[in-house]
Every structure is written in C-alpha cells, then in structure tokens.
Design a binder for these strands. Structure first.
Length: 139
DNA sequence: GCCAACGTTGGC
DNA sequence: GCCAACGTTGGC
C-alpha cells in the first residue's frame, strides 16, 4: 500500500463534495499533467491519500482511498489522460496547514513543500505518519 | 491580483 | 531537437 496526496481548489471540488459522493467515490478527473497522471497509473486499489485544499485553505483536510484503478478521463476524448476514482474515508481530526508542514523538519523533503505545482503526488510512509500525528488521526 | 515556477506547444 | 512563447498553477 502506498500513499498519495490529491490537490484541489475547494471552490471547484472540495472535501465536502468528495464526502457527498460517499462510498461510490468519484473520478479524480481534469488532470492534464504527465507526472500527475503517471502517479495515478501507479496507484493500486486501497491506496490511501490526503485530500488537500489549494489556494483557499492551503491545508490537508481529509483522507481518501483509491476505489477504482486508472481509466480514461471522462472529461476529455484525448486518450493520453487517465484518472482513478477516490472515495472519502475520514476527515482529519484537525486540518494540517501548508505552513505547519513547512515548519516541521520531518517534512522538509515532502513534495507538497518543495513542488507546489504537482497536483497528484506521492507521500512517503514516514510523511504519512507525521501528517496523521499532526492531524490527530490514526495512520 | 500578482508573479514565479513550471509544463507544454510549435516554429524552425 | 532546441528553445521561445505561451498557458497554468498556486503561494503570497
């Protein structure tokens, strides 16, 4: 099992919208970046991810699970773009902000801290534990 | 709202 | 295959 982080602007697709989809989950569509797509192709069923609000909030608000492997993105006819489906698992006990992540030396190498542009990114097991600790949830 | 960083496109 | 131009993301 691997760990990931999904970014979305809360105005466009936020945690509440994800939760509303329930156990069925929803396509993480709209990604038009090869690196992000490749990360989704590498995902397996049951992999966990953080749900991050970019721009407004700039914080990790919840935990999601991959519930469908990479498949063509229904929002485009371009066969290059694929996406997985994810479902909400649980909210963080307390949102973990980008500032907190930046301030914690254990997260100095985290992609979130170092590459603000990548919208679907890998998270190491150590980073996962640290964020869960800060957010007050079981890893 | 600005702009730096980054990725993509397309002419040559 | 290089690189200038352009578009987008996302922190600030």
């Amino acid at each position: 099992m691997r760990y990931w982080l999904f970014k979305s602007e809360p105005d466009v697709w936020g945690w509440d919208a994800q939760v509303a989809k329930g156990a069925a989950g929803e396509e993480w569509n709209g990604v038009r970046n090869y690196q992000a797509r490749n990360n989704m192709r590498a995902m397996e069923l049951g992999d966990r991810g953080f749900f991050y609000h970019s721009n407004q909030g700039r914080e990790i608000v919840g935990i999601v699970e991959v519930c469908k492997l990479a498949h063509p993105d229904s929002t485009t006819d371009d066969p290059r773009w694929e996406c997985v489906d994810i479902k909400a698992v649980r909210p963080m006990g307390r949102a973990v902000t980008l500032d907190e992540a930046k301030a914690d030396p254990r997260l100095a190498d985290m992609v979130l801290v170092n590459n603000s542009r990548l919208s679907v990114q890998p998270v190491t097991e150590d980073e996962w534990r640290v964020i869960c600790e800060l957010g007050g949830v079981e890893p």
